[in-house]
């Protein structure tokens, strides 16, 4: 390694760094912008009670006991109420794969932060409804 080849390497590195200054940043301004979430995104769940048959396969499949089922709470013919505990959920997707009646799905809502810990225990009403649309909520509207 001669002196001049080392100098050449130094200038190559400086060239790379210098050319980087004029490129666009890669990051997104998160609260104002967001990446596009793909179809299969495993966000919070949504429970469709019309299709539910209270088979409790999702409860069995859950590796961290995050789902609780209440079979006495009936709105339709043979459904059940689901209580989701998002302090425990690891979003593995096993419950959705276990559901044979298409009654449980993931949504694209991935930012679940809440001011209080208790708010992360979703009761049946919250797990049935989507309080905000993941794509409608985002965009440059907030800027």
């Amino acid at each position: 390694m001669g002196f001049f080849s080392t100098l050449g390497e130094i200038f190559t590195i400086l060239k790379h760094v210098f050319s980087q200054v004029f490129e666009r940043p890669f990051t997104v301004l998160y609260p104002y912008e967001d990446r596009e979430h793909p179809e299969r995104t495993r966000g919070r769940h949504i429970h469709i009670r019309e299709k539910c048959t209270a088979c409790a396969q999702c409860v069995r499949a859950c590796p961290v006991v995050a789902i609780r089922i209440d079979k006495s709470d009936r709105k339709y013919e043979k459904d059940a109420a689901l209580y989701f505990d998002y302090t425990r959920c690891i979003f593995c997707g096993l419950c959705v794969q276990a559901c044979r009646f298409n009654a449980l799905f993931h949504t694209k809502v991935v930012d679940l932060s809440e001011p209080e810990r208790e708010r992360l225990h979703y009761d049946p009403e919250r797990i049935e409804t989507l309080d905000r649309d993941p794509l409608e909520w985002r965009g440059s509207r907030f800027r």
């Binding site: 940043p25 890669f26 990051t27």
Partner: peptide
């Protein structure tokens, strides 16, 4: 700001 630019941040 410049460090951010070089590191592809903002």
């Amino acid at each position: 700001k410049m460090w951010g630019r070089i590191q592809m941040r903002r």
